[in-house]
Design a protein around this nucleic acid. Structure first.
Length: 561
RNA sequence: CGGGCUAUGGCGCAGUCUGGUCAGCGCGCUCGGCUGGGGGCCGAGAGGCCGCAGGUUCAAAUCCUGCUAGCCCGACCA
């Protein structure tokens, strides 16, 4: 029963002072969520209804591809995480029980699920298998932010596939991709499946599901037929006009000019005609000089993946010792390995001369220095895909990800099976995550207008809000009560605003909360035997007969997505 | 973890620089009445160890020290 007079739906007239992101502001104002600590949020009843709708869609689609729902504990013995080598992750919440035994609060459930499968599954006949759960995850985030977008505790749908071999994994992976497409479509999101970084965990492939919206923390490079996280995006660079080449590099005086802007300005060349030299210290390998075009930025994820090792920026002291004065570093004459970004092509570049207050012009890679060529730059808006489409870059929320784990967990946990020949083999795994809270936030961001939330029908806390405008006990309330009962008994999800509040307050709240259809019952309409229904998204108004109101409402709803 | 900001009734804020007539405003809430199609009006109320702990002072929301919590930017994000 959803009667607003006694329902915990605390709407706010003003934005909360500490909220910036649109979804954060609206979800708090519409009474969906409240904060209890940094990155710790309570779903109030209306918000909980929305989350449950998302979860239901997820369950239906996971079940449809053969997923088996289970539930694993959040509190786990540290031993499991020691075995996988993940115990030392900083974000992992650690605690001891009363006996002093170390435990963790799980941030995902690879360890737990693999532990079980290792003990219970023995034969190729039992595979493939897809297990999933909707369970809380705990992460000691360094910086929770934007309401429900990045929290320390959140529910995740995490699924794990178990296959005999890579081919099987491929099939499982594809099945999950199809399920994800249906899930995000049904939730009414605008979304992209992106190539993503496989991260330090290795693995043979990964996709992220990105919902573009202003509050997004990730950046996605988009073009017709192309979508990739900028962390891994590749593209054709925009051309740059290089000065005429010289037969050999020539030193020019650039006193005190250390930035790309200063040097390109002084030389009268575009920033892209400079070579930016970035000295880094690679784990176990010492200093390497990385070169990118002056108008480009180094992509640290790409570089790390290309190196197969971590790295850090060199300190000015290290740079001075190995190459020259920071601010005037260049590849010519530098006695360290050089990695040149693939966007540096042609000749006539300017770069640091490795001595104070001097740069070189007319530099030509290959002729003037040797290098290893890699793609290590950040793709920029305006770059093009290989088939010539211009790339745009949009912020996006990561609402899901899928990942080919391989045997990363099955090996340490001894999750093996016997194949047809009786040979013991490691099970090949994949994992598949979705954050329902992020779906909700993304839906709010993507569909809101200046009046408030505009829910996609599939996520709306209620389909209809019935709003009597008169005072309690008058005919607008009796008619509203009657319609409410009729709709409820016809399984329409309906909210009745039976509060003793003014018309303005009720109408404003209805818009803020954003149910797809609002039915207003006022004396004016009742006099003519009519009610007014208005669609939230389009603002389209319907006059409906009082006599047949419930049926009319259901017909209008049928046309709303 | 670096940088910035904030903490005063349920919410949004003023007051802090310049210590004392400083416990204030708007909204909300309670009671009574009016109004009843866009947060309306009148009247009467309730509600606060001014984030916490020390210190300075005759006197601290206000000055000093320490701490805690939250927000934003960055780093990080298996």
């Amino acid at each position: 029963m959803s009667r607003l007079s006694t329902y915990l739906l605390p709407t706010l007239r003003d934005d909360p002072a500490d909220a910036e992101a649109l979804s954060h502001r609206l979800m708090v104002r519409a009474g969906l969520i409240r904060q209890i600590g940094a990155g710790l949020w309570t779903w109030l009843p209306a918000g909980n209804r929305v989350v449950r709708k998302v979860e239901r869609i997820i369950r239906e689609e996971m079940d449809a591809i053969g997923g088996q729902e289970m539930l694993m504990p959040v509190l786990q013995p540290a031993e499991l995480w020691r075995r996988s080598g993940r115990y030392d992750i900083e974000e992992l919440m650690k605690l001891d029980d009363r006996k002093g035994a170390p435990h963790v609060l799980a941030m995902t459930h690879e360890e737990a699920v693999t532990y079980h499968v290792a003990r219970e599954v023995r034969s190729y006949r039992e595979l493939p298998m897809l297990l999933y759960q909707l369970q809380v995850k705990e992460r000691d985030e360094p910086r929770p932010r934007a309401g429900v977008l990045r929290t320390r505790e959140f529910t995740m749908k995490d699924a794990y596939s178990f296959d005999r071999d890579e081919e099987g994994l491929e099939r499982s992976y594809e099945a999950n991709r199809r399920a994800y497409a249906r899930i995000f479509d049904r939730c009414g999101l605008r979304w992209y499946e992106c190539e993503s970084d496989v991260g330090m965990m290795g693995g043979s492939g990964a996709h992220e599901y990105m919902a573009p919206c202003p509050a997004g923390e990730n950046e996605v490079a988009l073009a017709p037929g192309y979508a990739a996280n900028v962390e891994v995006a590749k593209a054709e660079p925009q051309p740059v006009e290089l000065p005429d080449p010289l037969p050999e590099p020539k030193e020019v005086s650039t006193p005190g000019l250390t930035t790309v802007e200063e040097v390109s300005g002084a030389l009268g060349v575009p920033a892209g005609a400079l070579i930016k030299a970035l000295p880094v210290i690679v784990d176990g390998r010492g200093m390497v000089l990385v070169l990118v075009r002056g108008d480009h930025r180094l992509n640290e994820v790409k570089l790390r993946n290309a190196l197969g090792a971590g790295f850090r920026q060199a300190t000015p002291e290290e740079i001075a010792e190995e190459i020259g004065p920071a601010g005037f570093i260049g590849p010519v004459g530098a006695d360290v390995p050089i990695i040149k970004d693939a966007a540096i092509t042609g000749a006539g570049y300017a770069c640091g001369a490795n001595k104070p207050d001097a740069h070189l012009i007319g530099v030509e890679p290959g002729r003037d220095f040797s290098f290893e060529e890699l793609d290590v730059r950040v793709v920029e808006a305006g770059d093009r895909t290989p088939d010539g489409h211009e790339i745009t870059i949009e912020p996006a929320i990561e609402v899901g990800n899928i990942f080919k784990l391989g045997t990363r967990y099955s090996e340490p946990f001894g999750a093996t099976y016997l194949d047809e020949e009786g040979v013991e083999r490691p099970i090949v795994m994949g994992c598949y995550g979705i954050g329902p809270a992020r779906i909700v936030a993304a839906a709010v961001e993507q569909h809101a207008d200046e009046k408030g939330i505009v829910w996609p029908r599939a996520l709306a806390p209620w389909d209809v809000v019935v709003v009597p405008l008169g005072k309690a006990g008058d005919e607008t309330h009796t008619e509203a009560e009657r319609l409410y009962e009729e709709l409820a008994s016809a399984d329409v999800e309906v909210l009745l605003d039976d509060r003793a509040a003014g018309a303005g307050e009720k109408l404003t709240d209805a818009e803020l909360v954003g149910c797809p259809l609002r039915v207003v019952i006022g004396r004016r309409g009742l006099a003519e035997g009519k009610l007014e229904a208005q669609e939230r998204r389009t603002g389209k108004e319907h006059e409906i007969p009082l006599a047949d109101a419930a049926q009319a409402v259901r017909e209008i709803l049928a046309g709303i997505e």
